[in-house]
Amino acid sequence: MIDELRRLREEALDAFAKARDAGELERLRVRYLGRKDGLISGVLRRLGSLNPQERPSVGAAANRAKKLLAEALQDRLGEVTAARSATERALDLTLPPRRKWRGTIHPVSQVIDDIWRIFQGLGFARARGPEVDTEWYNFVALNTPLDHPAADEQDTLYLAPGLLLRSHTSPVQIRTMERYPPPIRIMAPGMVYRRDTYDATHTPAFAQIEGLVVDEGVTFVDFKATLAEFARRFWGPGTQVRFRPSFFPFTEPSAEVDVKRVIVRENGREEETDWIEIMGAGMVDPAVLDNVGYDSERYTGWAFGMGPARVAMLRHGVRDLRLFYENDMRFLGQFT
């Protein structure tokens, strides 16, 4: 009789699952769970024919089966009713979509990412270095003796004499060249630190992105061409690029790179912007190559550094740099 109960249970569950509507389920309820003619009730009625030792266990099994089937029937009834109401109910399509939270990638990260993608296409790889470094890596190896006024250009945060928070990403140049032979084609994005007070264009910690190329036969002509190519890919094909002489201890000749963009106004008119300074760059000073043991008569190179937050300010019309580092959800949420 236990076997019969099991068979009935499986048969009923199968039938419930196949039922399409409430009427069919009602017929199945009467067939299996009906008080008078239900098949389970039939089993219970036959308990009397069993010997007294078997009766309680079979009775309990029959009751369990009855309860389980009743629950399963109820579940299935819910399912078919829901399915029907879903197909029949009119959807109000004027309702806004059912939404989830949207997260955003930080606008400065987005700029770094866009810059990186362009240089990735030009054969660069990313390199990383520590944020706490020594005077050797941050200054001296980069041809910036501490007794030269050039070392004042960046007011540096120190941990201990000789130990500092890097004031630019350029130490990564040295660390990478110490570790790998030429050819070098790297980018080094990362946080840098200066002893600046917060204002609309300064924060003590900010992102920088560095680029370095060293190989045989690398010239000022390649340097100009690659950075101009980057600028056109980043700001659009109509972008003009200007190289102005400047000074950085670790490059010679050194240049400031300016761009003049073409922006399209709402009325479709194209307009040129003013020249905007976007990066410092230059040919790697031979002293830097000598400091890492490269043969500076054989290898030449170029390097650049730029501030992605400044680029993000230009890109999004943000007037105060501090907004990028306040992390107000209402600000960050705009950069979807």
Binding site: G123, A125, D215, V221, D222, A228
Partner: peptide, 11 residues
């Protein structure tokens, strides 16, 4: 300003 061919880097 002329782009020239480059060798892949070691890094």
């Amino acid at each position: 300003s002329a782009l020239s061919a480059f060798r892949p880097g070691t890094v």
